[in-house]
């Protein structure tokens, strides 16, 4: 643990200016991930800029019928909001599936998006990790990789390999809702689609998002989404509570007669980012709402999947698990009783 300066600017612009000007500075919101990293020696900022109170803590109705969520809104408050529960149940469910009550009371909307992977080797300073120490190698490839990726990972070359997953549940729900992220930077404000906020590791696994140093998330906008009123978040994990997803499914579906007319699917626990399952969505629309369709759609999404084949516990089991979880989630939404 390295000593650091602590600053509390008067406004978001001041916070952005301070962090932008100092490569060693970092934003502090709820602190539920960053404070752990300080203790572990994983984050060594010279200055912490506390943004508590500098971004909105309100959830407001947008003119288009959507909602705007201030970056400072706590996870617990977002999950409890009546409008979120009625209009975007997938989001409320995802939030409540995450962490614990105590953590949700602290964690903010902006901070949740920017939490980092829980890969054991990333969090352990004594083991190689390309995300933490670029070029040092990936310990997970042949290590304990139960929580790791099957989609979009970098398996080689060794000096950039990364099979980490993004741990957020909330972000998976936001991906399926086509959320937009508002960001304030030294150059001004910009808006990024949620599904473009997080990166795949590519050749630069140390970068989780497309944000520049000093850019601050100020709000998340949800567009109106009639389909979302019938949506679900199904999280499959090793423990019934307080565990990260092995695989999670955020889904919304519209069925007319027996035919699927619209579908939204996103996956968590499978990639370096919340994974919008567009191939699955394409396979669903126009098809009959049956288990066979749901399974085929999941498999369509997995065509390019590549599990971690580790002798110490890889992710091959996630291929059938994704198929099972997508099938169960969509079956649940369509209210049918058919089982594997």
């Amino acid at each position: 643990m390295k000593p650091f300066a602590y600053e509390r600017p008067d406004d978001a612009q001041g916070a952005v200016a301070t962090v932008s000007a100092d490569p060693g500075a970092a934003f502090l919101a709820g602190g539920t991930n960053l404070v752990d990293h300080l203790r572990l020696g994983l984050a060594t900022p010279s200055t912490l800029v506390d943004v508590t109170g500098l971004t909105s803590t309100e959830i407001t109705d947008a003119p288009d019928g959507g909602l705007s969520i201030g970056a400072g809104v706590r996870n617990a408050d977002l999950a409890a909001d009546e409008r979120v529960r009625a209009r975007y149940p997938v989001l409320a469910q995802a939030l409540l599936a995450g962490a614990s009550g105590q953590l949700r009371n602290m964690a903010t909307t902006g901070g949740n998006l920017l939490q980092r992977t829980r890969c054991a080797y990333f969090q352990d300073l004594t083991t190689p990790c390309n995300k933490r120490e670029p070029g040092s190698g990936c310990s997970a490839l042949e290590g304990w990789a139960r929580h790791h990726a099957v989609l979009g990972a970098t398996h080689e070359p060794a000096d950039v390999a990364c099979v980490a997953t993004h741990p957020s549940d909330m972000a998976v729900a936001l991906a399926v809702l086509d959320a937009q992220v508002r960001v304030l930077g030294a150059e001004g404000e910009r808006t990024i689609p949620l599904s473009a906020l997080h990166r795949l590791p590519g050749g630069e696994p140390s970068r989780d998002t497309v944000l520049a140093h000093g850019e601050l998330i100020t709000a998340v906008d949800l567009p109106p989404s009639p389909i979302a009123a019938r949506s679900t978040y199904d999280k499959v994990r090793d423990r019934a509570s307080f565990a990260f997803a092995l695989v999670s499914v955020a889904a919304a579906i519209e069925v007319v007669g027996d035919t699927i007319t619209d579908a939204r699917v996103a996956l968590g626990g499978v990639a370096h980012k919340p994974w919008r399952a567009t191939a699955a969505e394409e396979a669903l629309v126009g098809a009959p709402a049956t288990d066979d369709t749901f399974r085929a759609a999941a498999r369509a999404e997995l065509v390019d999947a590549r599990p971690v084949e580790s002798p110490r516990g890889g992710t091959a089991f996630k291929l059938p698990l994704v198929t099972a979880a997508v099938t169960a989630a969509l079956r649940g939404l369509t209210g049918r009783e058919e089982h594997a």
Partner: peptide, 29 residues
């Protein structure tokens, strides 16, 4: 259902070394 100290023999230590990684049963189980 849960408890397993994952010893990564390449390094010689337990790598799921916190209570997020080393699961203990919760009431929900």
């Amino acid at each position: 259902l849960h408890e397993e100290s994952v010893l990564d023999d390449r390094f010689g230590h337990v790598v799921n070394r916190d209570l997020a990684g080393y699961h203990i049963a919760t009431c929900a189980d």
